[in-house]
Amino acid sequence: MTKTNPAETASVHAALNLQLANWSVLYAKLQQYHWLVKGPHFFTLHAKFQELYEDAAARVDELAERVLATGGRPLATMREFLDAATLEEGSGDESAIEMVLNVASDYRTLAQELGHAIADAEHAGDGVTADLLLGIRESIEKHAWMLEAFASA
């Protein structure tokens, strides 16, 4: 990361930590949904939620390592994640379709926040972080679309 001014660097670290917090909350939600999903779509959604929580775990690691690589300190406790996150935990009472729509909505929220984070990274001259976040955004926009299509059937 090109050293610009400390405020720009702090802004990038804050954006990365927001993503880290949200992905950590989403990971727990996806695992919960994987365990608790019921109904005629059980086999499909049980496997899909596992795929998505494994992806979320990789995102958490990737984001934390990027914070470290750019000289910051990643959030690292559940309390920090919950305090910083804009996503909410699952209740455990959702229907299978509500689970799908909740995850799709979470992905849409993440994509919007990633847009701001990408702009912050570009403004700070951190093309590597911007590129990383753009790749994440592309992936989750596709997931959101697919989940919404599944739920509309």
Results as ranks from 00 to 15, higher is better:
54 E>H: 05
61 D>V: 01
72 G>V: 13
129 T>M: 07
103 V>A: 07
107 Y>W: 05
63 L>V: 09
50 Q>T: 02
60 V>M: 10
33 Y>I: 01
85 A>W: 14
110 L>G: 12
132 L>R: 07
92 G>C: 10
79 R>W: 11
43 F>R: 14
129 T>R: 00
84 A>V: 15
126 D>V: 12
79 R>I: 10
86 T>H: 04
79 R>H: 12
26 L>N: 05
95 S>Q: 13
62 E>H: 08
41 H>R: 14
118 I>C: 08
90 G>V: 09
71 G>S: 06
104 A>L: 01
78 M>F: 14
104 A>I: 04
87 L>V: 05
120 D>L: 03
57 A>H: 04
34 H>I: 05
126 D>T: 07
121 A>Y: 04
29 K>Y: 01
62 E>R: 15
116 H>S: 14
81 F>Q: 05
33 Y>V: 03
25 V>L: 13
52 L>S: 06
78 M>L: 15
51 E>P: 07
58 A>H: 00
53 Y>V: 01
97 I>L: 14
110 L>M: 11
103 V>W: 10
77 T>H: 02
60 V>Q: 01
50 Q>E: 02
69 A>D: 04
38 K>R: 15
61 D>Q: 11
91 S>R: 15
121 A>S: 08
25 V>A: 07
133 L>I: 08
132 L>Q: 10
34 H>Q: 02
89 E>V: 12
103 V>F: 09
115 G>T: 03
51 E>H: 06
63 L>S: 02
64 A>Y: 12
101 L>V: 13
113 E>P: 12
107 Y>N: 04
35 W>C: 09
125 G>Y: 08
86 T>L: 08
27 Y>E: 07
83 D>T: 15
25 V>G: 03
116 H>T: 14
96 A>P: 14
77 T>S: 04
56 A>R: 00
86 T>F: 01
130 A>P: 08
130 A>Q: 04
45 L>F: 00
106 D>W: 15
118 I>D: 14
59 R>N: 10
87 L>G: 02
64 A>G: 02
72 G>D: 06
128 V>Y: 11
40 P>Y: 00
100 V>F: 08
59 R>Y: 01
35 W>K: 14
96 A>M: 09
40 P>C: 03
127 G>I: 06
111 A>Y: 00
131 D>T: 13
101 L>R: 13
26 L>Q: 06
125 G>V: 05
85 A>R: 15
58 A>Q: 05
111 A>F: 00
75 L>V: 02
88 E>D: 12
45 L>R: 04
136 I>C: 13
51 E>A: 08
108 R>L: 06
54 E>V: 05
49 F>E: 03
136 I>T: 13
117 A>E: 14
60 V>S: 12
113 E>I: 13
116 H>G: 11
128 V>C: 11
26 L>H: 10
94 E>K: 11
100 V>P: 06
70 T>I: 01
28 A>N: 02
97 I>T: 15
31 Q>L: 11
46 H>S: 06
85 A>G: 12
85 A>V: 15
64 A>N: 13
108 R>A: 05
57 A>C: 06
31 Q>A: 01
134 L>D: 15
